[in-house]
Each structure stands twice: as C-alpha cells, then as structure tokens.
Amino acid sequence: MTTYQITTELTTNKKQKMTVDQLGFGQIFTDHMFVMDYTAGQGWHDARIIPYQPLSLDPSAMVFHYGQTVFEGLKAFVTAENEVLLFRPDRNFKRLNASNDRLCIPTIDEELALEALKQLVIVDREWIPNAPGTSLYIRPFIIATEPYLGVSPSKKYQFIIIMSPVGSYYKEGINPVKILVEQHYVRAVVGGTGEAKTGGNYASSLKGQELASKEGYSQTLWLDGKENRYVEEVGSMNIFFKINGKVITPALNGSILSGITRDSMIQVLKSKNIPVEERQIAFEEVLEAAKAGTLEEAFGTGTAAVISPIGEFKWQDEKIIVNNGEIGEVTQTLYETLTGIQNGTIEDAFGWTIKL
C-alpha cells in the first residue's frame, strides 16, 4: 500500500463556529486547507495541510489572464452514530483529471488526492454540522500560478482543497424552484469546455443568471448553443423531466457536465424500476407535454442542492406550471434515497460512501 507524505501544520488561532441557523452556502470556511504545488520537470510536490489563509500570487499569474483553472464539489456527512461519510469522492477526482486534460493542466494522483482529502476532513472534523439538511461542502481546485503573460499552458500550478459547513443551497430548500429558459445567450457548445468543470463555464452563465434573478427566477435553463432548441442543463444542475411515466434527462454530448449526482440519480431510478432515458430533448417537447398534461415532474440535480424540484418554467412569455408547483412523488423518493445514503440512514447498496 502506497504511503503518501503529507505534512500537517495545525492552526493556533481557531475560528468561532457558526450556529446551524447561521449557515448559508459557501460563506464560512474551516480552520485548515490542503495545498500541493506543481513545477514543470519536478511534478506535483510539497503536499501539506496548513491553516486556512489567503494565497500570495504574482499579478501576472496565468490563472488571472488565461483562465486555466478547474474545480470540483463534494460533501462529507456525519451519521447518527457520529461516523463521517464521504460520497463518491473517487468520481470527483476522476472528473477533475478529465477537466485537467481539457484545460492542459497536469493530472493529479487520484489516490493521493483522496488521502489528502481524508486527512483534511479528519483534521477539521468538528466543523461538520449534524443538523438535517446540513453537510461539509468540499471544494478541490487547481489554478495556474506561473508569472507569465503568454498564451500557453502554465509551468506552475497549485492544487488546493478548502471546506465549508453549509446549510441548504437554495433558500427554498426542498420546495420547488422557478426556472427561466434562456433564449439569447448560450453557456457552451460541443467541442468547447462545457463538459469540463472550469471557471469560465460559470462566468459565461452569469448574465443569464442575472436576468433570471431580475424576473424572480432561481436559475437559468440553458439550451444548446447551435440550434437553441435542445435542453442542456441548469446553471448549477443537470436536469430531469418525468413525462408520461418516464424520466428523461439530456444525454451527455460534450457540452453538458457529467454530473456525479446525475449519475447517482439514474442508478437509483433503475434500481427502483422507474423508466429512465438519456437522450436529446427539445424544450418544445417539454412544452407539448405540459399542454397535454403528461409533464408530471421536473427536477435538477447537483452536489450543492442534491435535488431541486422545479415548479415553474418561463419560456418566452409563457409560464409552465409543473405538478401544481409542488414536489412530485419520484422527486421526493430520489431526494430521500440519496440523502439517506449520504447521511447513513439508508443502506448504501451501491458502495458509494467511504467511511472515515
């Protein structure tokens, strides 16, 4: 078994913990962070856990100018027996390396990354909230740090993991959200970076999100960048529709993020013998189903929100109400099953959780 050298420097100035009702999302951070450096010719080196602190970067660091950065998001949970569970972290690091490849960033040792994550969670274990609906959100990311103004892959990088105790991602909680279908802007195109988890994808989605917020909607539903017809994903989630008894989600086509929660939901659906299909779906088909009364449910999935039922779409000047604006039976079942596996109240028949 490989032994990894990860040094640990504990903080001498611990932060004050927040109460459960003070937890938002991504606003409070734990006492420590993991950092590892990359230098061309040397590879990844100097793996360390250190007190959470600001980064010191040269103003010409390439991440600021050319956007070479990737990230992931996953969670840790505390069970009723006070055990710590990680949910599918191996898939996150596998996807991180896929993003690295697309952005010309050196791949990381996935086993080392997982060991570093485990050690960091153990060091900051007391930060994991245990109230229903709460968790420890974990953000691994890589940035290009070489001080150089030139359009080429950086020769230096940092791999960092930070963590944040969180409550519900949406203020609505598990209640249905409202989604605006974007008609003008596009998020990504096939052949671009849509399937990579990189900051630029999210920066390009901000204008749509801004417009949606102005109209009172929680998120934007993005359509394909070529014909502006086919459903792709919501700003921070993959999307599913239940039409006439069958659950449909857009097939991964190179411009849609391969969501780990998406994959988990598909497996749960199959295990419960609920028909599920991955294919191209035009929003007109969703609209027609709504008019025919066969659009039964819609929901988004992602690490941050887990699952968000959708109660309304706005398409052009038309409002489409889904299931009377209420959470559907399948959506509720999926939420209870996945969160139950994550927090240890339901047996993990899939082998997804890792116990620390």
Results as ranks from 00 to 15, higher is better:
2 T>M: 10
3 T>W: 08
3 T>D: 14
9 E>P: 02
10 L>S: 07
10 L>H: 11
11 T>N: 08
13 N>V: 01
14 K>C: 00
18 M>Q: 15
19 T>G: 12
22 Q>K: 15
24 G>E: 06
28 I>G: 10
29 F>D: 11
30 T>N: 12
30 T>A: 14
32 H>W: 07
36 M>A: 12
36 M>T: 07
37 D>L: 04
38 Y>G: 04
45 H>N: 09
47 A>M: 01
51 P>L: 01
55 L>S: 05
58 D>K: 06
61 A>V: 01
62 M>R: 07
66 Y>A: 10
66 Y>P: 06
69 T>C: 11
77 F>L: 03
77 F>C: 05
81 E>Y: 05
84 V>D: 01
85 L>Q: 06
85 L>I: 06
89 P>C: 06
90 D>T: 11
92 N>G: 08
95 R>F: 00
96 L>W: 02
96 L>R: 02
97 N>M: 03
97 N>Q: 10
99 S>F: 04
100 N>V: 07
103 L>V: 09
103 L>W: 03
104 C>E: 11
105 I>G: 03
106 P>A: 02
108 I>R: 02
109 D>I: 03
110 E>W: 05
115 E>C: 08
116 A>H: 06
119 Q>P: 01
129 P>K: 11
134 T>H: 09
134 T>K: 06
135 S>F: 03
138 I>G: 00
138 I>N: 05
138 I>Q: 00
139 R>A: 00
140 P>H: 12
140 P>V: 06
146 E>V: 01
151 V>A: 13
151 V>F: 09
155 K>R: 10
156 K>G: 00
156 K>N: 08
158 Q>R: 15
163 M>Q: 13
166 V>H: 00
167 G>K: 10
168 S>K: 14
171 K>H: 11
172 E>G: 05
174 I>A: 12
181 V>A: 14
189 V>A: 15
191 G>H: 10
198 T>R: 14
198 T>E: 10
199 G>Y: 03
199 G>P: 04
203 A>C: 13
209 Q>H: 11
215 E>A: 15
217 Y>T: 14
219 Q>H: 15
224 D>L: 04
225 G>K: 12
227 E>L: 15
230 Y>F: 15
231 V>Q: 13
233 E>G: 12
235 G>N: 10
236 S>T: 15
239 I>C: 05
239 I>F: 01
241 F>I: 08
245 G>E: 04
247 V>S: 05
250 P>A: 02
253 N>W: 03
255 S>L: 00
264 S>A: 14
272 K>I: 04
272 K>N: 13
273 N>T: 11
277 E>T: 13
278 E>A: 09
282 A>T: 12
283 F>V: 09
285 E>M: 05
285 E>C: 01
287 L>G: 05
287 L>F: 14
291 K>D: 14
291 K>N: 14
292 A>S: 15
292 A>D: 13
294 T>H: 12
307 I>C: 07
307 I>D: 04
312 E>T: 07
321 I>Q: 04
323 N>K: 09
327 I>S: 14
340 G>H: 07
340 G>L: 02
341 I>M: 09
343 N>E: 13
344 G>Y: 07
346 I>M: 13
347 E>Q: 15
347 E>S: 14
351 G>A: 09
352 W>D: 08
353 T>Q: 12
354 I>P: 04
356 L>H: 12
356 L>P: 10
